[in-house]
Amino acid sequence: MAGQSCLVANDWICWEYVTSRSRELTDATVEHVWITGISVLIGLIVAVPLALLARRGRRWAAPVLGLTTLLYTIPSLAMFSLLLPLFGLSASLVVTGLVLYSLTILVRNVLAGLEAVPEDVREAARGMGYGPRRLLWQVEMPLALPSVLAGIRIATVSTIALTTIGSIVGKGGLGNLIAPAVSSSFKAQVLTASVLCVLLALAADLLLLGVERLLTPWTRATRAPRRAGRVAGRAADRAADPARAGAAVASGASGASGASGKGA
């Protein structure tokens, strides 16, 4: 550490910056995480009814999918600015914008997951006396889970990246550190905040991948057909007793996992 410190020299990599501003960095990261988390959560809550609406037939599917795709076309800076008169300079503005973006991916994946549920599984459940609501939550949703989770993963990763734009209204998590550092050419701050942002996206991706594996163990067992019945049985227990017909669940699950690939 002889000579001048890396803060004075304005180096790209500066450990002194990280230690001396750790409070600021932590606060920004925490803000980043909660803005992303809330946005994806609300996005999911909105996306499920929209997907159910779109499933009712072409009359609903075209406007729902068209509108959510249209929203995705609007550049993020414009989106946040268009919401300004409604929300003012607040975190709810950023969250609303991010929710609207997440809908594109989430609605599509929820819909793809639901549509991949084989008709004979539905028939079997109806034959066993399942009403429409129980059919949805206990049979169709568990089978759509792989596609839904894949959607959540994509939406979360892109939302983490988009949150930085929220710095235009001062609520951009790590973006708040990047914006002022550009005008003052503070290299260490720009690099550290950027790297943290990418690491955050990476961590979220891995975490959600783990959740995906934990919640849908049957998707990995499709290559071993002999064990499929047993695994599906376990999955059935976990997913609150979706359908007691083990074989039907297994075939449904493989169909849904196929759809998740396309949904992504």
Partner: peptide, 8 residues
């Protein structure tokens, strides 16, 4: 998808 445009 994971890399923020703004950061780059």
């Amino acid at each position: 998808r994971a890399i923020p445009v703004f950061a780059v």
